[in-house]
Design a protein around this nucleic acid. Structure first.
Length: 569
RNA sequence: GGCAGCGUAGCUCAGUGGUAGAGCAGGGGAAUCAUAAUCCCUUGGUCGGGGGUUCAAAUCCCUCCGCUGCUACCA
């Protein structure tokens, strides 16, 4: 049994995530985790909210809450929505947990001890009005290059030039508009990433053939352009405090930069899991044990932090923590060609999606159209056509037609008469091939291809049923009709097992038309027996239940209404 | 500006040197078990433009155009 450690990029705390966030890390991680469990592997799936940083402070301010309360509430909301989408994490932690504080400080101490950190004095913008330091992006002013008067301190959105806040003419706080700001000296810890270039180069190149092209090329680009040392502390109050024994007391009152502590929370959340479940030191074995395969799921914006930043932290600490083996990176899901946007409320968010339709509709559509090789685009029209055709017509109707026929003509019991003939053998051969392909695609995390194969398997069921035509044979040759129905019901059962990683709730419903799911449903096993056995396992006489409609079709009027409500164009 | 990814049928996308593919949509037919759901056949593309290498290019090279993203203090 292989042990598989899976992490999803941590969703940021400031509000409900949209479908682009979901399909870019949390959902594929869950589908893969379910597949791995269904293959019998020992899986630990970890996620958490990323709670530190300026945006969290500001969101709390806007909500009129203190930041700890705000984060606790938002965490609960994100956890509930994750459950609503059947994201089966072993643990959904919080980067503000005591476990993460302890680990982050321990990593920093190790880096300090090993000489990979140094204190540098930097110039920071301080706002007297807000009585706080401002990140570059929260200082606005007139661009010295193009004269745009709302340029941000990190970059001018108008001429795209990279700026320093001190470049701005008439700088002011983006929060209050106050011009009562000044530049102050501030000491910060820098992680000497530049020293790690040769090791990173070797490590990244060793994964070149294994990692997706997208991931390798982004990682490679950062190395090619020359790694800068990176500031890993900030002048904020909300975050993991820098311990006094680092930096000779020059960093009193400062916290670590969220990008330093957020990846460490992968480990922190694993400890949260262990603490919450009496697992003792098992969390450590997942991260320092030898036989673990570690896979990260993340959007392309996160690639640099997972191929450079976090690996440098782990290499520099030199305490045997596990580096990632496989990185599954995703492009963006767009909404009618433009970006999903949390700040502009553009697109569909997890809470709104679940208000419209059950999770499995979204899970199937999103994974079938995952932005794997390029950005993908969501439209209501496309969503409706995929749901209606693939889920309602091809899968749902298949289960419906055969179980209802069995109920009407065979008293709702698996008919035991007759023996499989040429038609059945041809189907078995086809499915042996297709199921092997499906398994390969899941193992390779090629989700679009996996779902296309899954769909082709459902189609093969319909093709078989048309050829076997029990509704015709029932009039003249009951045994022949019985064979077709028995095979049809075996197909229903097998479809439930094959589909579970993608549409877990529906898969269980489908399974229950035939018989209850064994073993409490922690995982519905992926079929590994030859199809000849797999498709011939239902007992003659065993009662089944005609299925209800599994997937309701989406009507044109609903598409029109949702487009109007969510702003498609 | 620099860098990266992408550009293939009406739509969404496979395809990295060997006769252009799938699903959906469109057209024709079969069947009547089923949510009018299914199945079979089929129309449709000078692979963004141009140039080059090669016996052979969607695929390799050059160049131009377009879209998207990144550019290190948003995360």
């Amino acid at each position: 049994m292989t042990r598989v450690l899976i992490t999803s990029a941590l969703p940021y705390i400031n509000g409900v995530k949209h479908l682009g966030n979901l399909v870019g890390s949390m959902l594929p991680a869950d589908v893969y985790a379910r597949f791995a469990r269904s293959m019998g592997h020992d899986v630990l799936a970890i996620c958490a909210t990323d709670e530190h940083g300026t945006p969290a402070e500001l969101a709390a301010l806007e909500a009129g809450q203190d930041v700890a309360t705000y984060c606790a509430e938002q965490h609960a909301i994100q956890k509930r929505l994750g459950d609503g989408f059947h994201l089966g994490w072993d643990y959904f932690g919080r980067s503000s947990s005591p476990q993460n504080r302890e680990l982050t400080q321990a990593f920093a101490r190790a880096l300090w001890k090993n000489g990979h950190l140094e204190v540098r004095t930097t110039k920071q913008v301080y706002s007297n009005a807000e009585k706080r330091f401002l990140p570059d992006r929260y200082v606005i002013g007139t661009c010295p290059h193009c004269g745009y008067d709302r340029a941000r301190g990190d970059q001018c959105e108008n001429c795209t030039r990279v700026l320093d806040p001190t470049d701005l003419v008439n700088p002011r706080s983006a929060l209050s508009g106050s011009t009562d700001i000044e530049i102050r000296d501030s000491a910060h810890l820098f992680l000497k990433q530049s020293q790690f270039v040769p090791r990173l180069r070797q490590w990244i190149d060793s994964h070149r053939s294994e990692w997706p092209h997208l991931v390798y090329s982004i990682a490679n680009k950062w190395l090619e352009e020359g790694l800068h040392d990176r500031g890993i502390t900030r002048d904020l109050s909300w975050g993991v405090p820098v311990p006094d024994d680092i930096g000779d007391g020059k960093l009193k009152g400062k916290v670590f930069y969220v990008w330093f502590d957020a990846p460490i929370e992968y480990i922190g959340a694993t400890k949260e899991w262990a603490d919450a479940n009496n697992k003792g030191e098992q969390w450590r074995d997942w991260w320092q044990g030898k036989d673990v395969r570690y896979i990260e799921f993340l959007g392309k914006d996160n690639v640099p932090f997972h191929t450079v930043g976090f690996p440098v932290t782990i290499m520099g600490a030199d305490e045997g923590w596990k580096l990632v083996d496989q990185i599954k990176g995703f492009n963006w899901l767009n909404y009618y060609g433009g970006k999903f946007s949390t700040s502009q409320k553009r697109g569909i968010f997890m809470d709104a999606a679940l208000d419209l339709l059950p999770a499995d509709y979204w899970r199937y559509y999103l994974m079938a159209n995952a932005p794997e090789s390029a950005d993908a685009s969501f439209t209501w029209e496309h969503f409706a056509s995929v749901v209606n055709k693939d889920l309602a017509d091809v899968l749902g109707n298949f289960v419906n037609r055969i179980t209802k026929f069995c109920a009407a003509r065979f008293e709702g019991r698996v008919p035991g008469e007759g023996a499989y003939g040429d038609e059945e053998k041809a189907l078995i051969a086809e499915l042996d091939r297709r199921v092997a392909e499906l398994r390969n695609f899941f193992e390779a995390m090629e989700f679009r291809k996996a779902l296309a194969e899954l769909r082709a398997i459902w189609v093969a069921g319909n093709e078989y049923l048309t050829r076997a035509a029990p509704w015709t044979h029932i009039r003249t040759d009951r045994a022949r009709a019985a064979v077709a129905v028995r095979m049809g019901l075996n197909l229903v059962h097998t479809f439930a097992h094959l589909s579970w990683p993608v549409i877990p709730a529906t898969a269980v419903k489908i399974h229950e038309t035939i018989q209850p799911v064994a073993g409490g449903g922690r995982a519905v096993p992926f079929p590994t027996d030859p199809m000849a056995k797999e498709l011939d396992q239902l007992e003659g006489g065993q009662p089944i239940r005609a299925s209800d409609v599994l997937f309701a079709k989406i009507a044109d009027e609903q598409v029109a209404e949702w487009k109007a409500r969510f702003g498609g164009d």
